[in-house]
Simulated scan of single mutants.
Amino acid sequence: MHSTLHTTPRPDDGPVTVVWGEMPPGTERDATHAALLHAAADLTGAPVHRIRLDHGPGGRPRLTGPASGLRVSVSHTRGAGAVALSRHRPVGVDIETVRPFAAGPLARRWLDEASADWVARSPRSARVRAFLWLWTQKEAIGKARGHGLGAGGLTQPLPLPADTLPGPTGRLRTLPDDPRTACAVLPTGSRRHVLALAVGDV
């Protein structure tokens, strides 16, 4: 994995590190886990062989050894993966591959009414990306909170754009109903994937 992004929720918190990359289909899980261990070694200065990936309740990833204090999140999709690491804040990351699907009906089935209406108003050519713009942020928020898309994650309100789909600015925005949680769609330089980050307790 080759692209490293940094974003800062607050000036005194230190950066959140996000590493993402593309890889051959079928290798995503192993490549993403390896990237997490190497990123943790870079942040801590510890040898990578001393760091292990474990899972807590609900399958949430956690690191042991010298990197045990880091807050981490992992995501992979067909042909790509991403990890997020923070010294101070709970983090969630989600990456999805852009591919054809019925975005409007899926939004009506899975998302809250305001989100589904926004997807439906999007130009037909942008509906898949609009759906993934919402979906990845909701998934990342759920991971930062420790429950994934359960516990109302799909109906989590997001600050919706007024009209057109925004570009991936990477600017963290707090949630309308929870000013302690912020999320963003991050720029990757690739239109094949949508990558979102959420940070808790900001």
Rank of each mutant, 00 (worst) to 15 (best):
P66K: 00
E96K: 09
K143V: 10
V93P: 05
P47D: 15
V16R: 00
D112E: 06
S115R: 05
G167P: 04
A67E: 03
P11V: 03
P100I: 02
R52L: 03
H193Y: 15
T7G: 01
R121A: 15
T32K: 09
R145V: 09
R71H: 13
D42V: 03
W118N: 10
K143H: 12
H193K: 08
G104V: 14
P66W: 00
G69L: 01
V194H: 11
R109A: 14
P105R: 05
G153P: 09
R171I: 14
G146Q: 13
I51A: 08
R127S: 09
G152M: 07
V202C: 06
L160C: 06
L132Y: 10
D13Y: 01
L53E: 03
P157N: 02
L37N: 08
V128T: 14
A114P: 04
H2W: 13
R192D: 15
R89G: 00
M1D: 07
L186I: 04
K138M: 09
A103H: 04
G69T: 03
A184T: 10
E139S: 11
G146I: 11
C183V: 15
D201T: 06
L175E: 12
D54T: 07
E113L: 08
P161N: 01
T32Y: 09
P179Q: 05
R171P: 05
E96V: 08
V199N: 00
M23P: 02
D201G: 06
A31M: 07
R99H: 14
A35N: 06
P123T: 00
I51L: 05
R127P: 07
D94K: 10
R109W: 07
R50N: 12
G200E: 01
P66F: 02
H88D: 07
L37A: 08
I141S: 14
R62M: 10
V202A: 04
